[in-house]
Nucleic acid binder design. Sequence first.
DNA 1: ACAATTCATTAAAGCGGTTTAACGATCAAT
DNA 2: ATTGATCGTTAAACCGCTTTAATGAATTGT
Lengths: 320, 320
Amino acid sequence: MATIDDVAKAVGVSKGTVSSVFSKKRPISQEVTERVLAVAKELGYYPNHVARSLATRKTMIAGLKMPISRDMSLSGFEIQMINGVMKQLAKHGYRVLLDTLPEHDDPTSFSMDPVDGVILLNPRKADPRIDRYGQMGIPIVLVGRPDPDDRSLSYVDNDNEALACEVGRYLLGLGHRSVLFLNTIRDMTVASDRAAGLRRAFAERGLALDDDRIAYYSHEAYGNAAAYGYSALREMWGRLSFTAVITDTDRVALGVYRAARELGIAIPDELSVIALNNDATLAQEMEPQLTAVELYAETLGIEAASLLMDMMAEYEPQQK
Amino acid sequence: MATIDDVAKAVGVSKGTVSSVFSKKRPISQEVTERVLAVAKELGYYPNHVARSLATRKTMIAGLKMPISRDMSLSGFEIQMINGVMKQLAKHGYRVLLDTLPEHDDPTSFSMDPVDGVILLNPRKADPRIDRYGQMGIPIVLVGRPDPDDRSLSYVDNDNEALACEVGRYLLGLGHRSVLFLNTIRDMTVASDRAAGLRRAFAERGLALDDDRIAYYSHEAYGNAAAYGYSALREMWGRLSFTAVITDTDRVALGVYRAARELGIAIPDELSVIALNNDATLAQEMEPQLTAVELYAETLGIEAASLLMDMMAEYEPQQK
DNA sequence: ACAATTCATTAAAGCGGTTTAACGATCAAT
DNA sequence: ATTGATCGTTAAACCGCTTTAATGAATTGT
């Protein structure tokens, strides 16, 4: 690979001049610019990103850290979020370094990332990475509420509690008095937030929501989201009485629909179904059409990215 | 941020020694190692990835370049592919630099990427990036057949022609003689490969497949995949006679199912439906269950990544 | 015509690591 | 005691770029 020195030598100018031609940070005469560009092209020279980053102390890369789910695959929600993040960062010339590597806590194998900022999706409880990036002076934005809640941290999240409460009110308003809630994985903060929100809606009417009316997803027990909905409905339909079921996602609802068809349950006459997240954007295509809450994961990603961009801009004068 | 010099000075050893403690590339006595680690921890020192990359000429990052689709969102196929790529690269400590930035051809604004290798998804015809990376001496692997076909390029792809032919034979074997093919976007190489494969199956039986039996998706005309299936079936059902429809993906099939319900067409008695790609993994959940080809996009990603890893390993002795 | 600006260019000092060649100390073999 | 390895450590060169301070040429004002 040709370096900036090769070009400078060939053209007969200093490397500082060549540098300026490419970075456009200082005016260079038209004539010199053309000569430099011509030689650069001939030599196949492209500025070395790493060297430039070292000198400027900016990589124009943002890290996006995702938890590795059991099956190592991304949900629709995550995808949309990533999309939002990338879309927003791209506007300012930023790229995304995706990673799902588990963080080993061996300090010798941990290397500072080549990033100007980090977006951390679904942080673990008391996530050690948060402090680490703080220590390194790298701006960080969380997607999902941090636990324990730290006021000095920036994060974006949906108000899942309020959302679930809203859905609860809606169903109660329709006359439903007993529901089945097919919640997401138990140990996620969303899961408890939603349960709390739904309980609040019931409490407002002086009603209680028993624990056995809330089920939790588990990859081991059900295999996949649709299977979860299918099995849960078949299992519960005889045991409990309810006129509405709230599902985690549209995929879960798809399973519920199938079970309902097999059990001869008429939707929506006999049973109402509502999904808290239109994850796979299936709601419109289902028959009868599914009522689903739109979470706008992409918007979440966009907001997270904007927030990060602001923070990185402020941090700018980190000129040692 | 503390640098390696700070640590070296504080411990009273040379930076080379500190470097060796962290990179583990040279033996350092137990005693010194401990002292260095202790001071590093105290100072909050973490090796600078960029500086290290500059010195070693390796970033441990692979670029993944994706085309930006009109709606800026990733299909299930792409997601699975990305998953495969990340999974495989992670095994060797590699990370993924995702990017969908359009490549401007302004040489001054093009900077060499901080990557050791590149995976290019769905290259454009005569993609200029291919040459560019070649020039820069960066290994590159394509996902999707390059056009024009260049024997010196590495790529992985499904044999879409054979696949479509197989599906055609299957339907013909079942007694179908006239089909409707809801193909993907016209100007993709997959689209023509599939059409050719299906035609071959028909030709084997001395049958022809008219052009009007192959429809092509377009974002503008249909909005989304399911709407494509829905509209296409409604539009064609009266005009043409066919006993089977081959769809691009399961989502398209979902739309076909809905239209069929509305038109009172019985699936599969009156109409068989088969999808060439179980994109959203909906096939199992549909009623009646959909027949769909599994493309194993993740496997494709894994293969692409393995190939790239091999190439990067060979390239190793690029010691200038 | 002379001082005061402006402007493009340069030499050299970083940026924060790795790596090579040299070195003194320790140890085993002669 | 002498030679030859082996081992941990170091000083200095290097990776490829940016940036600062200095310089000389060209332009402007008076």
